[in-house]
Amino acid sequence: MHGLIVGGIFVLVGLLNAYPAIGMLGAKQLAGLYGLTFTDTNLLTLMQHRAVMLGLVGAFLIVAAFRRELQLAAFVLGFASMLSFVVFARLQDDPSRWISKVAVADVAGSGLLFVALVLYWLRG
């Protein structure tokens, strides 16, 4: 039973991480995600690359839901991805409401991932 819950959490957190991958489609999609305009093509390139990386993180978490041997690495990657964003957002003097929403989502995702980690250890 614990294995099913852990897997389900990996899928949920993976989808949460993969959602911003729509930003790879362009400035309009990124504006919808972050409430910013991306007129600087260099910034647009960086943010599109970020979207691809988040999609890869999400995909790895989803694959780990079905491959126990990948789950420890998925825990590390998931926590590192989400909690680093939370830390960077908290270091800002006045983050936008969009950034704050992403940080809250990452805190929630990290909380779910922590529950999965506890269940992972309990099942041995």
Rank of each mutant, 00 (worst) to 15 (best):
K28C: 00
F88M: 15
A108R: 03
L54D: 07
L117Y: 13
I99P: 00
A59P: 03
N42C: 03
G58N: 04
H2T: 09
M1Y: 04
V87C: 09
Q48N: 10
V57T: 11
A31Q: 11
A105K: 03
A116Y: 01
L72H: 10
S84Q: 10
L61N: 04
R90W: 12
A27S: 14
I9T: 02
R123K: 12
A21T: 11
A65C: 09
F114G: 06
A18I: 02
N17E: 10
L12G: 01
G8Q: 05
L54R: 05
R67W: 14
V6Q: 04
L54G: 02
G78S: 11
G14H: 02
M1P: 08
M47G: 03
F85Q: 10
L61K: 02
F75E: 03
Q71E: 15
G23P: 02
A103T: 06
T41G: 04
A51T: 05
G14P: 01
G32T: 07
V87Q: 10
T41R: 14
L44V: 09
I62V: 15
G78Q: 08
V6Y: 05
Y120E: 09
A51D: 04
L15Q: 05
T39M: 07
S100A: 11
M47R: 10
Y34G: 04
M24W: 11
I9C: 05
H49Q: 13
L91E: 11
L16M: 14
G124F: 12
P95Y: 08
A80N: 05
F38D: 01
H2E: 09
A21Y: 02
